[in-house]
Write a protein that binds this DNA or RNA. Structure first.
Length: 328
DNA sequence: TAGAGCGACCGCCAGA
DNA sequence: AGTCTGGCGGTCGCTC
């Protein structure tokens, strides 16, 4: 059964951030056998609405937010103005009912106004981070991250980080292999690395534009081998200290932490597809023997490797969603 | 479970 | 003066 994503539209919303969830959730790219999403574009009262010069043809009403599994709130208003009251109320009610609530960019102001971010970490556009913190002091604003996954409430930073967060949702719902395949179709990194490092550190490698790209690719092809900082430094022709600094600047992570995140990603893929025994997944990812691998995987992902594999196998059989997985 | 050994990380400083 | 790099050493966390 498809997962219903409600996308409320108000007249001031940014077309680009409305387009991102449409692109990710609105197209069935993997055939009828792959559970996917049903995207429902909504407007207040189901009335015609124009956002960014475009208008949804037959929008659902905001009532649809009370039936959706996930509600995505795009960037929608000048931060010095009060958020759309009807949307705030609908989002608050949807969250109370148990829906997963997602904001893109300044959509975080709607969530904050609804009280959903009180006591939580949240991301928004860096330009408006100070305003969000000023206006909603109970929110722990993170101007330095691409997105924050707080379980039932997720927030992304400015503009194109919406892509990162939407792909993260696909990864959570359908696994790393599907998310990576979708990213490839969209010709975008499955996850960016950059100045804004992820609060949930599940980043996949990307060419960073600072010369580290080839080294990251080289390392990614050798995840099963015992790589060390010294080895990476020699490979890059850099001093170890400089390598650590460069890694930080371009990925937000120290070398071994980056490597471990990549190894966990590889382990997820091996568990999702193929029949590699759990006992062997660790060594094939460079995460050590079974005991060490199980502990690392559980600490990072939140479930044991076998439970993770079962959840994906079971989902294929009965269509139920996988268990909640902590991403970092 | 405790402890030793080791690697990774990072702050600090000096030199280019 | 500002930036980048390399070396040193302390601390932390992981592994056995």
């Amino acid at each position: 059964m498809d997962h219903v994503v409600a996308l409320p539209v108000t007249p001031t919303m940014s077309l680009l951030e409305l387009a991102v969830p449409c692109e990710v959730f609105g197209y069935r790219r993997f055939g009828p056998d792959q559970d996917w999403y049903e995207l429902r574009v909504c407007s207040e009262g189901g009335e015609p609405v124009v956002a960014g010069g475009f208008a949804p043809h037959h929008p659902y009403s905001f009532d649809e937010l009370q039936r959706a599994d996930t509600v995505v709130v795009a960037a929608g208003h000048a931060p010095d103005e009060a958020p759309h009251a009807g949307l705030v109320a609908a989002v608050r009610a949807a969250h109370r009912r148990g829906a997963r609530i997602v904001s893109l960019c300044t959509g975080a102001f709607v969530l904050a106004e609804a009280g959903l971010l009180d006591g939580r970490s949240a991301a928004t556009h860096w330009l408006h981070a100070a305003a969000l913190a000023r206006r909603y002091p109970a929110v722990h604003v993170r101007p330095d991250v691409l997105y924050v996954d707080d379980g039932d409430v997720l927030t992304s930073a400015g503009t194109l980080s919406a892509v990162d967060l939407c792909l993260h949702l696909v990864r959570t719902d359908h696994g790393a292999a599907v998310a990576n395949a979708l990213a490839k179709r969209m010709v975008t990194p499955a996850h960016r690395e950059g100045g804004q490092s992820q609060y949930i550190q599940t980043a996949l490698p990307a060419h960073t534009g600072d010369g580290l790209g080839p080294l990251l690719d080289w390392a990614r092809e050798r995840l099963d081998q015992p790589l060390t900082v010294g080895l990476l430094a020699r490979r890059a022709g850099l001093n170890e200290r400089t390598l650590v600094r460069r890694f930080h600047a371009s990925t937000g992570l120290a070398p071994m932490r980056w490597l471990q995140a990549r190894r966990i990603d590889r382990a997820r893929e091996l568990l999702e597809v193929g029949d590699t025994p759990v006992e062997r997944v660790g060594e094939r990812c460079g995460l050590g023997g079974p005991a060490n691998f199980r502990r690392l995987f559980r600490d990072t992902v939140g479930v044991t490797p076998s439970a993770y594999r079962r959840s994906f196998r079971a989902r294929g059989a009965d269509g139920s969603p996988p268990p909640a997985v902590r991403a970092g």
